[in-house]
Design a protein around this nucleic acid. Structure first.
Lengths: 337, 337
DNA sequence: ACGTTTGCTGAAAGCGCTTTCATCAGAAGA
DNA sequence: TCTTCTGATGAAAGCGCTTTCAGCAAACGT
C-alpha cells in the first residue's frame, strides 16, 4: 500500500492524458473540456491520488501555507486568534504553520527564518517591536506580512489601540472616584502591547491630575498566579490602591481571587478592571469589568488580509479594531467620593 | 533585494565548491573537511543563504514538519498540549502545522488529507474515534502517527485513562457520602474522551450500588457557559444532585459560578469536582477539586514519540500517563452522611 | 474558400535541492 | 614500489509537479 505513492503521472497514464492535463485538472479546471476533466477526476479518485505539496510548492512557488508566530500558544488570547485564523484559512485551502517565541526576540528571529525557509506564502506576527534583523529578513523576503495587536506603520497590520484600552480602564476608575490606582502589567520587555496599555492608563491619570507612579505598577508573568502575586504586592503597600487595573484579564481575575483570599470584597473594598474581555471574565464573580478586545476578529482579519495580499489585492495598511469598556460588577464608586 | 533569492548554487559558486558540497555542509557537515566547511559556511552567511524547504522536502522526502489535528485551538487544554509540542519540536528543527476540526469527523478527514498532502513527517491526532476513511488514509500513508488522550490499540498513542479520571472523580464524591451525583459532559458525539469519563463515573457509582441515570447527565458545549447551563439544568430537577462532576474543569468552574449566582455555597450546598486540572482551577474560589491530567506532558511526549518514530527508533506502543485526584475546597462530606 | 481566432491538449524545461556513483589524492599496507 | 583503502569532493540524475510554448482542430469572419 505505502509502497509507491500514486503520482500525477500515474493518473495521467490511467486517464490517457498528459501530465500537464492532470495538473490543470487540479489547478485550473476551467481550461479543460468537461469530458477530459471528468475522466481525469475519475482516475484521480480511483487511484486515490494526493498531490505532493512539496513538489507543487517547488514548481509553483506557492505553498498554500501561512506562518504565524505568537508569544505562546498557551494563552486564551492567542489560542483564540489562531483558531479563528486557522478556520478562516482552511476555508481557502491554506494551512497554518505555527511557532512561538516565549517573549524572546532572538527566538522570534529564528522562527521567522524557519518559516521563511519553509516557504510560507505569508506571515502573521504579534506586536510591532522586534529585532532589526527580523525586520530585515521580513522585508528582504518580500512576503506578505501582517502584524497584529500593534502596528509599526511599516508592515500591514490588524490592530487595536492598546493605549486606549489602558486609558479606558483608567478613566472608568477615575470616573468612579478612585484616585489611587494600581496596575499589574506583563513584563514590559519585548511586549509593546503591555507597554502601551500601561502608558494609556498613565496618560488618563495624568490628564486627570493624578499619577501612576512606578510604585503602583508591578510587572508579572502573564498568568493568573502572576495576577494574584501582583495584587498581593500592591495590597501590601503602606497606602494600598483602591482600584487595580490588570494588563490582561487573567491578572484581573487573579486580583479577584487574591482579594477574596484576603477576606476583602470586590468591589466594596477594591475595584478591579481587566483588559481583553475573556469569555471567562463574564462568568467569574463578581463579573469582571473589562476592556473588550475583539481577539477572534483579529485572527480572522489577519487571515483575510494575508490572503488578499497574496492575491495581490489592495488591503488597508492598518486596520484598527475598536475596543470597548464592558462594565460589570467588579468596579464601583469609591466609598465616600 | 527580493529579486532573485540566493540559492544553493550561488553559495557553491561563491565558495568555489560544487552544489553537492554545499548541500552536505548543511545536512552532513561531518563529511566535509574543516576547511571546506568553514569556507562554505562563510559564503552562506555572507550571502544570507536560506535553504528552500520545498526543494529540500522534494529531494529528500522529509519536510521537517509535523502535523497536529485537534478539535479546536481555542481550548486551554489543546493550546497547552500544542504549545509544549511545538516547543519540543522546535528544539529539533521541526515546525508544527496545525488544523482543527471542531468535532466534525468529516473535517478531520479533510485535515488529514491536507496535512498528508503537505508532506508532514508525522501526525498527531486527538482521540481514537474517527471515520474509517481517515484511518485508512493514515495507514496507507505509512507515516508515523501518534494518538493522544485516547488510544485505539492500533496506532501509537500517548494517553491518559479517561475512564479512571471519571471514576476517581465519582469515587471521591461517593467517599464523601454523596449518593445523588450529576454530571455535565461534553457532547458525546465524536468525543471518546468525554464518553470514557462519563462511563468511568458511571462505573464507580454502579460499583457502589448507586447509579448515574441519564436524567442526571447533561451534554453541553465545551465552554464555561455550557457548564453554567448544565449546572442550572441539574439544580432545577425536582430532586437535584448534591454533587456535580464536570467532564472538563471549565464545566466545573461554570458550576461554581452558577451555584454562586443562585445564592448557593460550594461546597456547603453543593460539591463540585472537575477533570483536567487547569491552572485556573487552583485559583477560583473555592479551589476546585479536580482530577489532574498532565496536559503539557502529553504534547511533549507526543512530539518526542513522533520524532523517535521518524528516526526509526523503537517507541512504546501506548504510553499511559497518570491522572491524579487533587482535592481542594469545592468538595466536602455530605451533611448528615 | 482561405486566413484567423478560439479552445483544448501535449512536449519539455525547469523549480532548488539531495543523493548515488564515480573520481582522485594521499595514507596505509604488502 | 605498487596495490588497496580511506576520505573528500564533484557530476549528474532525479524528486513530482507547474508552466510556458507549440500544435492542432474546429469555429469564425469575410
Amino acid at each position: 500500500m505505502s509502497g509507491g505513492r500514486v503520482k500525477l503521472s500515474d493518473v495521467a497514464r490511467d486517464a490517457g492524458v498528459s501530465p500537464a492535463t492532470v495538473s490543470r485538472a487540479i489547478a485550473q479546471p476551467e481550461l479543460l473540456s468537461a469530458e477530459t476533466l471528468a475522466r481525469v477526476r475519475a482516475s484521480a479518485l480511483r487511484l486515490g491520488y494526493l498531490p505532493d505539496g512539496a513538489a507543487r510548492a517547488l514548481a509553483s512557488g506557492r505553498s498554500m501555507t501561512i506562518g504565524a508566530i505568537v508569544p505562546t500558544l498557551d494563552s486564551a488570547i492567542f489560542a483564540r486568534a489562531l483558531q479563528s485564523m486557522q478556520a478562516t484559512l482552511a476555508q481557502s485551502g491554506y494551512l497554518l504553520l505555527v511557532a512561538s517565541h516565549e517573549a524572546s526576540s532572538a527566538a522570534e528571529t529564528q522562527a521567522v527564518r524557519a518559516l521563511l525557509g519553509r516557504g510560507v506564502d505569508g506571515l502573521m506576527l504579534v506586536g510591532a517591536e522586534r529585532a532589526p534583523e527580523t525586520t530585515a529578513l521580513l522585508k528582504a523576503s518580500g512576503l506578505p506580512v501582517v502584524l497584529t495587536w500593534c502596528g509599526d506603520g511599516h508592515f500591514t497590520a490588524v490592530t487595536i489601540d492598546n493605549a486606549l484600552a489602558g486609558r479606558l480602564a483608567a478613566e472608568h476608575l477615575i470616573g468612579l472616584g478612585h484616585r489611587r490606582i494600581g496596575m499589574i502589567a506583563g513584563h514590559l520587555q519585548f511586549n509593546d502591547r503591555q507597554r502601551a496599555r500601561l502608558e494609556g492608563a498613565r496618560g488618563a491619570l495624568s490628564d486627570a491630575g493624578l499619577s501612576l507612579p512606578d510604585s503602583l505598577v508591578v510587572e508579572q508573568a502573564l498568568t493568573l498566579a502572576g495576577g494574584r502575586a501582583g495584587c498581593a504586592m500592591l495590597l501590601e503597600l503602606d497606602v494600598p490602591p483602591t482600584a487595580l487595573i490588570g494588563g490582561i484579564d487573567l491578572f484581573a481575575i487573579g486580583c479577584l481571587e487574591e482579594a477574596h483570599a484576603r477576606g476583602m470584597t470586590v468591589p466594596d473594598d477594591l475595584s478591579v478592571v481587566g483588559i481583553d474581555g475573556l469569555d471567562m471574565s463574564a462568568h467569574v464573580s463578581p463579573g469582571l469589568t473589562t476592556v473588550h478586545v475583539p481577539t477572534g476578529r483579529i485572527g480572522n482579519l489577519a487571515a483575510q488580509t494575508l490572503m488578499a495580499m497574496i492575491a495581490r489585492q489592495p488591503v488597508d495598511r492598518e486596520r484598527l479594531l475598536p475596543v470597548e469598556l464592558v462594565v460589570r460588577r467588579s468596579s464601583q464608586r469609591l466609598a465616600g467620593s
